[in-house]
């Protein structure tokens, strides 16, 4: 008798699945490997020897620290802005029915659907026309455009599941708007905001395109890495930094995944 369900996948399918995964992740492992190589100018396989000295070198490079600090600052501030604006927007769209609600929803999501280069060019020309000098804050504004989207998407999904009568019950029991937000709404959307915020942070942290158009003289970490690839000296430093970036962005994304896996899609995670 044949069972209804195919429990075992055929061998060719298994092999191609493995190849697909290798194709995705082998290059990342190679980057990790060359962070330990003893050779600094060009990459040969296999590496002639393994060393930990590049970690020390990286630690003592002020340009790495400057780029890292800038990236963390930008990502933090952009995430903070996104959390406030994204949540407010999600609350408006899911709570109230008003003319143009769907259009607002689409316009909020648009920056993540549009190629980053469009957002970048648009922001750059807008900043020039308004005579705003490129600075830390223009980078933050650029990043906030797509950070808002991930917070908004997470918050809107949670607001939809939150029964409207909870807010009414709170008001009915004597809580004003602020108390209702503090004691009822916030605890119920907190994990969604945490997940959205972490994704926003991770997106901002490795953003290149919008940053190139909105940054002045400063370089964020990804930009610094791009510049560094051109220089043939101390190349493994880039690999060390890459490893750090992978870890810094992977952890929040994993956390966000586990926080929201009961039902909600992490919309926009693919950017």
């Amino acid at each position: 008798m044949r069972s209804d369900r195919l429990d075992r996948a055929p061998l060719p399918l298994k092999i191609s699945a493995c190849l697909g995964l290798l194709f995705l992740h082998l290059p990342i492992l190679l980057i990790f490997l060359y962070a330990f190589t003893t050779e600094e100018k060009s990459y040969r396989f296999p590496p002639p020897g393994l060393t930990l000295e590049w970690f020390a070198v990286t630690w003592n490079r002020p340009d790495v620290w400057a780029a890292l600090t800038l990236s963390v600052k930008v990502a933090s501030l952009a995430t903070a802005i996104a959390l406030v604006l994204g949540t407010l927007c999600a609350a408006a769209v899911s709570r109230a029915a008003f003319f143009g609600r769907e259009a607002v929803s689409l316009l909020v999501i648009l920056p993540i659907a549009l190629p980053g280069i469009i957002t970048g060019i648009a922001l750059r020309s807008a900043f020039s026309m308004a005579d705003i000098p490129f600075s830390f804050f223009t980078i933050v504004l650029g990043h906030a455009t797509f950070c808002i989207v991930v917070v908004y998407n997470n918050a809107v999904a949670r607001f939809r599941r939150l029964s409207g009568s909870l807010v009414e019950a709170s008001m009915d029991l004597g809580a004003d708007g602020f108390q209702t937000f503090r004691y009822v709404v916030l605890p119920n959307i907190a994990t969604a905001l945490l997940a959205g915020g972490m994704l926003a942070f991770a997106l901002s942290f490795d953003e290149v395109i919008v940053t190139t158009f909105t940054a002045g003289q400063q370089s964020t970490l990804p930009i610094w890495m791009l510049e560094e690839l051109i220089r043939p000296r101390q190349r493994p430093v880039t690999n060390v930094v890459a490893m750090v970036v992978v870890l810094v962005t992977l952890l929040p994304i994993l956390a966000a995944y586990f926080l929201t896996r009961d039902g909600d899609q992490i919309a926009g995670a693919g950017k």
Binding site: S165, E168, A169, S170, D172, L173
Partner: peptide, 11 residues
């Protein structure tokens, strides 16, 4: 005045 909601609306 206080309300008992149809879906109870417990937090």
């Amino acid at each position: 005045v206080n309300t008992v909601f149809q879906d109870y609306a417990l937090f």
